[in-house]
Design a protein around this nucleic acid. Structure first.
Lengths: 191, 191
DNA sequence: TAGCTTTCTTACCATAGGGTAAGTTTTACC
DNA sequence: GGTAAAACTTACCCTATGGTAAGAAAGCTA
């Protein structure tokens, strides 16, 4: 929990009351590799802040193929924001790739914190802005780069994720099959 | 300008002072088809709210190919948020696809409005959340749908955009060539 | 309405990446 | 340490989409 408080305080000043409230709605959890926190088709109640380990969110298409939307490691948030925003059932599955420790928040309680303690607004706005920017970049990369280039960029941008996750999850994030990623990795070694 | 005020008021209550301030930093403009409001490689000062017409943002890759990040029609915002957030030169070009009327805001003044009039925070948060959700969906669609399916979905989601823009811009948004889009359109007609 | 410009279509071949399947290697666990 | 499961690689052929080029259609403008 201290990780989250520290992260927030690096961005804004928060009162003792606000900190207490945040603490009161938080639930620290240890989760095991393979555990599913949100399952496609079911209701979504929570958002998660990761303190150790690695989680990912993905959807399963009509052919049963998985497509990874996001990885989350230390200090990142993960949930099914599509479902939360639209108040729908989950379109994503959120699963633990490794044993992890997380802080669980009820999404509605977390949303309410902005009206209770407006000091969080600026923090959240910066968070969302950064998120939008990184999504813009990802879309542009997907449009203009080859699979090989996207993989190189992934390793450069997220050097810490590789250690946690099998390559086929990275492949599904990049939009290619694990076989293609394997070929790319072979070519890279031979250069 | 009334369009923007109406849109904001549909989401939050704003004071007369806030409305006045917003008005004071706004600049209504008529822009012609082909006009470039932000050019890749140059400084980015402004964000734009569209009241009529259609604009798009795109980047040009190392082979000179254009990739459309976004279209913007009535009631949408457009700019180079990557550049604004990172305080960098533009990675995108924003151009008018048709004669349009827009409201121009200096990005820094627009950002400052949140500390001057905190009532805008909630509005902006909702805006950003919606934007994140739509980007998540776009990424998932790009990962799991074929070009044909993406085109059908585009027409369904944004039926108003087609009338403003040549097909090759839509193709560049979908991540395919205009030749491929042309083939897709032929197949569709024959069904 | 003629003539230019822009946009769209068609055709041909090339290529990146996919699907399936069969290994091989690594990891986890009893 | 042996065995099963998970992850990765390789190979073969296939398909969707790209590149280039040429031509047709549509839209402007004189």
């Amino acid at each position: 929990m201290q990780d989250l408080i520290t992260k927030i305080k690096s961005s804004i000043a928060i009162s003792a009351e606000a900190e207490d409230h945040l603490f009161s709605i938080s639930k620290e959890k240890i989760v095991a590799k393979g555990e599913v926190l949100i399952r496609q088709g079911q209701a979504v109640k929570n958002s998660f802040f990761v303190t150790t380990g690695c989680l990912r969110s993905y959807c399963i298409d009509k052919n049963g193929k998985e497509h990874t939307l996001q990885f989350a490691i230390k200090d990142w948030w993960i949930s099914d924001f599509i479902a939360i925003y639209n108040n729908e059932l989950a379109t994503l599955t959120v699963e633990c790739i490794t044993d992890s420790s997380i802080i669980e928040f009820n999404a509605k309680e977390l949303d309410r914190i902005h009206s209770l303690f407006p000091e969080f607004e600026a923090y959240q706005r910066k968070n969302l802005e950064r998120h939008v920017v990184s999504l813009h970049k990802r879309i542009l990369n997907q449009l203009q780069l080859t699979a090989t280039e996207r993989y190189a960029l992934f390793l450069e941008q997220y050097p810490d994720i590789e250690q946690y996750t099998p390559n086929y999850h990275i492949a599904s994030y990049l939009g290619i099959t694990q076989q293609s990623l394997s070929r790319i990795r072979v070519e890279k070694v031979n250069k």
